[in-house]
Design a protein around this nucleic acid. Sequence first.
RNA 1: GGCCCGUUCGUCUAGGGGUUAGGACGUUAGAUUUUCAUUCUAGAAACAGGGGUUCGAUUCCCCUACGGGCUACCA
Length: 504
Amino acid sequence: MENNIRVRFAPSPTGGLHIGGVRTILFNYLFAKKHNGKFILRIEDTDQSRFVEGAEDYIFNCLSWCGIKADESPRDGGDYAPYRQSERKSIYRQYAEQLVKDGYAYYAFDTSEELESKRQVIENFKYDHHSRQTLRNSLNIPHEAAESLIKEGAPHVIRIKMPKDENIHFTDMIRGEVSFNSSEVDDKVLLKADGMPTYHLAVVVDDYLMKISHAFRGEEWLPSAPVHILLWKYLGWADAMPQWAHLPLILKPNGHGKLSKRDGEKFGFPVYPINWIEPSSGKKADGFLDVGFLPEGFINMLAMLGWNDGTEQEIFSMEELIEKFSMDRIHKVGAKFDYEKAKWFNAEWIKRSTADHLMPYVKPVLSKHGIHDADDEYVKTIIDMVKERCHLIGDFYEQSAFFFTSPDKYDTNAVKPKWNEEKASFFKAFADDLKASEISSSLELETKFKDLADAKGLKTGDVMLPFRIMLVGGKFGPQVFDIAQKIGKAETVARIEKALAAFN
RNA sequence: GGCCCGUUCGUCUAGGGGUUAGGACGUUAGAUUUUCAUUCUAGAAACAGGGGUUCGAUUCCCCUACGGGCUACCA
């Protein structure tokens, strides 16, 4: 089915893509897919001073891990290439000049330093309809003078000339009617001195040229929406203007401000999908992938932060999200991030996943801890045995290491106080007994264990825990006889004998 | 400061003129698991405040308070 829904997002490769950005992208993507439209990814790399090498790859890696693929992007191509703003530089100037010619914008020659010093002297200084008459711009100096200044190569920017006291209103898909008074908004720079456009110009020009139908972005853009609305009008494209949606922000867990990149370290949870090396400090910040999230759990958690389908369902796959997604159920308010709940989503996904699906995630974890050559089928049965007690992928190591290696340390506090000669002799006899017999099921093993305990005049309960400690090392793990059966008779005997030596 | 957006358990949220205000995370207690986790059962826990409108307001309107966003030649 072909339609004209074209949704876009434009991340900037200036710093890692954090979860707020990913969620905005996710909502863009869900809406596009829901309506059989196209999801377009443009790269906002016009701020060269903050551009970070490798950051664009990083964005694509993150999205790929999340299972989000753009229909058009610098990587995937499309009808409106190029998709990097830096490569579209030549396009923007002509539109900025057109605005100047039509009287909607002007050249300004003030340097950043000059404006900065004004800001320090004048409280709440704004470049607006009041102050522009006193500043160095083409509205105040003769036309010819301005022209020649530009010819001489004098540094200049192009600013929008915001009208005085005009009511600018538009309909936001999430907030409904929103209105601003144009006098409140300053004369934003559209084209910078280096010839690059600012976001304000670029977003309008690109959205127009790329035939974008829906423009979704974070709530932090709401105050500059009037600039963009005016630009659509001034460029004569009012009829083609996309529908707007300003998505709520993700807030810090304590509610004080929007979640920032530094909060990961501060609060002890990841803020990036996959690990990101902060260019300024060289510090590596683990991502959700690194701490053991499944992409399904991550996406599910993000989607539920500010959206729900109106039922009590909380677990959604990407396919279900696409099917059930609707704009009118997106919240207006920012949501505080809750890492505990995030982990719960992940645990649910681990429990619901098959061993086959989990294999590629679990294997590297085991291998990191030196468990390399385990048989795949064996690992799969182990995964099914322990997955319900794992919240993060890394938990698979602690929960299953004893299936592969004999414990080196024992929780002796759990055994020692009640340890005695009788128990020692029971285990010795049990080990000897095992050596001499064929065991095929855990039930058979259990019966043998209990019978022997009876014969020795011991309560089964008194020797169960020591047995577990011998096999596992601690008070955790699945059914003890299942473990014994899994690791096999020889290994069970070996572990009993090894532990016996350690306990005495 | 100005402008904009918002406010239901600690957190994520459902609801909507008359409800015992529902669910989930977390938390507490209990059961199951002779361990731990899972699972199950039960409990504590919310409509920011004040004015209207109305027979009736958590729901609609206004004000206040509080929170968030923006206020760059950053996005």
